[in-house]
């Protein structure tokens, strides 16, 4: 292990540039530790985001040596090349400053993809009973642990080429709701995710699935949406 790490960090907005820092190497050091060290000890003007530090909140994602990652759970050992690290804001999102990306479009797309639960019961009704063994529950479970980190969104080349594309996370969310037996909003939801800005544009590259830190497979959910949308279109329900 080298005694220090050479770290290139993006500074400024889209027209900014990388600046290099030397950071002492420590055992079990994460990329977020490195960024925090720079902000606390070397340059207090560095802007970055984090909250939980334990892989729960989804706020710490950055581009590390060219690939999007959650920085709080990414060990320097695994990603540094020759004692070097390059940290930049997430791709496919506007840069606000330094390592902070503007997440508005990312979350607006969740809303546009019908990401809100739409129930049709009131508190006077019985609880819905969903069997843990049911197929739909299994499909919903497979995608439910998303932490909204936008790593997948940043990894997706279709988002880069088609700015309207809803992207893997929003579509994964829609898929979990399509499989939620309590949800009553699927007609609108399928309409929302159909078409060229929706699931049909996915090229099945699987960059999202490869990069998702929660090991989810948005690609599989999107394939499910494609089938559901195609069936709805053929039945004239779209």
């Amino acid at each position: 292990m080298n005694a220090t790490l050479k770290v290139r960090v993006w500074r400024g907005d889209a027209a900014g540039a990388f600046r290099e820092y030397e950071v002492p190497r420590r055992e079990s050091q994460t990329v977020l530790d490195v960024v925090s060290h720079i902000q606390r000890a070397l340059d207090p003007t560095l802007a970055y985001r984090f909250a939980c530090r334990v892989g729960m909140c989804g706020s710490c994602a950055m581009t590390v040596n060219g690939a999007p990652r959650w920085t709080c759970r990414t060990h320097v050992d695994r990603v540094a090349r020759g004692g070097r690290l390059e940290v930049a804001p997430l791709r496919n999102l506007p840069v606000i400053r330094d390592l902070v990306a503007d997440m508005r479009e990312f979350f607006d797309k969740w809303a546009r993809a019908g990401g809100q639960f739409k129930g049709d019961r009131s508190r006077h009704d019985e609880f819905a009973r969903v069997s843990p063994q049911s197929e739909k529950r299994g499909l919903a479970d497979a995608g439910i642990e998303c932490i909204g980190c936008a790593v997948c969104y940043s990894a997706c080349d279709v988002v880069a080429r088609n700015p309207d594309y809803l992207g893997p996370a929003a579509l994964n969310r829609a898929w979990t709701l399509v499989n939620d037996e309590r949800d009553a909003g699927n007609a609108d939801r399928l309409r929302a995710v159909a078409g060229d800005a929706g699931c049909l544009s996915c090229h099945t590259h699987m960059s999202c699935t490869e990069r998702c830190p929660k090991a989810l497979s948005p690609t599989a959910g999107i394939a499910g949406l494609k089938r559901a949308v195609a069936v709805a279109a053929l039945r004239g329900e779209l």
Partner: peptide, 15 residues
């Protein structure tokens, strides 16, 4: 183009 048309075109392409 409506979403239904886009979807039907997608089906036509697979078929």
């Amino acid at each position: 183009m409506t979403r239904r048309t886009e979807t039907l075109l997608w089906v036509a392409q697979r078929a």
